[in-house]
Simulated scan of single mutants.
Amino acid sequence: MDPTAAPRPDVPKLVATDLDGTLVKLDGSVSEFTREVLVKLEEIGVPVIFVTGRPLRWTRELFEHIGSVGLAIVSNGALVWDVAADEARLTRLIEPALAAEVAGALKTNLPGLAFATESLGGWACEPEFAAHISDARRPAQRNAAIEELAEEPLIKLLARRHDHDDADELLAAAVAVVGDLVNVTHSSFPLLEISAPGVTKASTLELVCTELGISASEVIAFGDMPNDLPMLTWAGTSYAMADAHPSVVSCASHLAPGHEDDGVARVLAGVFGL
């Protein structure tokens, strides 16, 4: 398949793209070609919305690439950030009682899990939680047991078991325990990313698109990991990256070149005739 061929005769009205493993390169950078394509889409009036599992603190470094729509969907849909106003447009939080119930059930059924939390005030973790390398410059604001950390509304509840290196197996085990209470997913390595019930990239993107007067059929979406599955299923046109998780490749209607090959930008240049 020619990755730059338009997938349907009518041109999409909005682009929704994941970041890591999708739009940005392995080192977290955005190539000059991708920058040019994003600028050209802005010039022709096509909004591009970043829809990422990243927390806000990791997404800020890419805000320079956000166009006039000025919105980013972060933390797998739990937060919509207004970049210009530098404030939350929408929050979809896990209530404390539910977070405590979920953490307790996971601790009982999956021994060895260590927990962390994301809130509007930042992130915190249990002492035994091994932080992601991206947080080396951003230490946790608080270290305490999850029972204490879950006493406030959360953007996201995170869990790792450091002797478990299969992300899909860990996800399946967690879904079997708490999948009827919350949304559980992962975006690469064995880290459970837990959101409030019904909160996904897709459900929040739908809210934003409704506000903009854009339907699912008018959206083209790109992703590479299981946390992208709801968005790719919802969007009228969906692309998995060539190096995406097998479940994403199976779900998406089209395949884009890999993120190291500017796959998103190459597809968009063809679709929009840039």
Rank of each mutant, 00 (worst) to 15 (best):
R35W: 03
G258S: 15
I220P: 05
T17W: 03
S187I: 03
A173R: 10
A131K: 06
E169K: 15
T233S: 15
N183V: 01
A105K: 14
E118M: 12
L229C: 03
L93K: 10
L232H: 06
E118F: 11
V69W: 10
I214C: 09
V37G: 04
T185D: 02
T204P: 11
A84D: 09
L149V: 11
D180W: 10
G258D: 13
M225Q: 03
H245F: 00
V184K: 08
K107C: 15
R266N: 10
T17R: 06
C125Y: 04
R160C: 09
V177F: 12
H259Y: 11
S29W: 05
I73R: 07
P3F: 00
M241E: 08
L154K: 06
V271C: 06
H254W: 11
A136N: 14
E118W: 10
A150Y: 10
H245Y: 09
S119T: 15
A150K: 06
T117A: 10
I66A: 15
V102L: 03
H65T: 08
A176E: 13
P139N: 11
I73F: 07
G270L: 06
F50L: 14
R92P: 01
A202M: 05
D166E: 14
E36L: 04
F115C: 02
I44P: 00
L157G: 06
A150V: 13
P139S: 07
E126I: 07
A221H: 02
N143H: 15
E218P: 10
E128F: 13
I220F: 12
K25F: 11
A78R: 08
G77F: 10
A240F: 06
V15D: 04
P153A: 02
A256D: 01
L192Y: 07
E118H: 13
V271H: 03
A5E: 15
Q141G: 15
A6D: 04
C209R: 01
L113I: 07
R54T: 15
D165T: 12
G77N: 10
G258N: 13
L98N: 07
S68E: 14
V182A: 03
A97D: 15
R92A: 12
V69N: 07
H65G: 00
Q141K: 14
A116C: 14
L170G: 08
F115S: 10
P139R: 13
E151C: 12
G67E: 13
N76D: 12
